[in-house]
Amino acid sequence: MSLLKLGFQYKGVVYRGHNLRWQHAPESGEGAARNGGRWNPVGLQALYTSERFETAWLEAQQGFPFKTQPLTLCTYHVDCGPLLNLCDPAIQERVRPNPKEWMHEAWLNKKLRREPVIAWEIAAQLIEEGFTGIRVPSQANGATHRDINIVFWKWSQKVPTKVRVIDDEKRLPSEPSNTP
C-alpha cells in the first residue's frame, strides 16, 4: 500500500510563535528555508506549527524555556492535506525502519558536520509522494506527549492546502520592522 493512502486532511487551528523579525510574514516559510530545520534542509520552505499554543511557545524559545524571548504568537485556520501522521509508531516504521533512531536524530549537529540528515531524506521522499506536510511529536525541551507539531511543506490560502493566519483585526504589520 502506498503511504499516500495513509494521508489525511487536517482541519482545525494550529499555532506558531514568530520571532519578531517575521511577524510581518506569518505565512512565510522563508526563515526555515534560510536556516533549515528538523524537517527541511536549507532551501526548502517549511511552515512549522503546533497543535497547542503552549507547544508553539516551547518551540519558539529554542530550548530556553526559562529565558523567554519576545515573540508574536499567531493562530492559523487550516484545511490542508494530505498530511502523514508520524506520531503513529506503525506509520513511522513503514516510513523508515528504526524510528527511535531518526525521530530523535540530532539533526542540527549533523547539519553542522555536513552529515546526512535522515529527517531531510524522509521529507524529500514524502514530498515526492505528494504529501503537503507531517504531524510529528515535538522535540522541544520540556515537551510531553501532548506536544504535537504540524510541519507544512506546501500551503496556500485556499483548500486543499489552506493555512491562513487569523488576523481579523489587522494587528500584524505588513512591512518588516526595524527589530534587529
Rank of each mutant, 00 (worst) to 15 (best):
N141A: 15
R38S: 02
Q125V: 07
T68N: 04
P97V: 02
N85R: 09
R164N: 15
E175Q: 09
G17S: 05
S2F: 06
P70A: 03
K162H: 15
L4V: 14
N109H: 13
K154Y: 08
T161A: 08
L20T: 02
Q157G: 11
D88G: 06
L4F: 10
D147I: 12
L4G: 04
I150V: 14
D147M: 08
T132P: 04
Q69W: 01
K67F: 07
E105I: 11
T75G: 04
G37S: 15
P70F: 09
I118K: 12
V95R: 10
P89I: 03
Q23G: 05
Q92E: 09
M103L: 11
E101T: 10
A33S: 15
Q9S: 06
V151H: 04
Q9A: 07
T68P: 05
S174V: 11
P70W: 05
G43T: 12
G31R: 01
Q92V: 01
A46T: 00
N35R: 15
R113F: 12
N178M: 08
D147E: 11
P173G: 04
D79Q: 03
G7Q: 08
V95P: 02
M103N: 05
V117F: 01
L44T: 14
K67T: 12
L47C: 03
T132H: 12
W57D: 07
Y10G: 00
T161W: 09
S138M: 11
A106L: 01
V95C: 08
G37C: 01
D167A: 03
W102D: 05
H145A: 15
